[in-house]
């Protein structure tokens, strides 16, 4: 069986869906963050796959590297926010952080 673009996209879609499911359903802020990582990596997989099968060059891989860096930075900032949140409401459950409720 030749592994083609469709397989990568399928895996990536599953990853994205899992990540999205995590983001939407988990109440723990850290879990949401992990879901986001899944989504980002699904996107990375797409970049790399399209770079391999559709366009010639390294622009897709380059973007994947950018996304990894962005994910690292994002994790740092997000964790800092979660810490601050914990200090304020003694919890990391996003259900309890509803001060913006209308």
């Amino acid at each position: 069986m030749i592994i083609g673009l469709e397989h990568y996209l399928f895996i990536s879609a599953i990853l994205f869906s899992l990540g999205l499911f995590g983001v939407l359903t988990r109440r723990n802020a850290v879990s949401i963050l992990m879901g986001i990582e899944l989504i980002l990596n699904a996107a990375n997989l797409n970049f790399v796959a399209f770079s391999r099968f559709v366009t010639i060059g390294i622009s897709g891989q380059l973007f994947a590297v950018f996304v990894i860096i962005l994910a690292a930075a994002e994790a740092a900032v997000a964790l800092a926010i979660i810490l601050a949140l914990y200090q304020n409401i003694k919890s990391v459950s996003v259900d309890e952080a509803d001060a913006m409720k209308g």
Partner: peptide, 18 residues
């Protein structure tokens, strides 16, 4: 009525967006 949509919960917003 409309304020009820402003739940303050990010996940709701996200769900709607999706």
């Amino acid at each position: 009525v409309l304020r009820k949509t402003q739940t303050g919960r990010i996940q709701n917003y996200l769900l709607i967006a999706i």
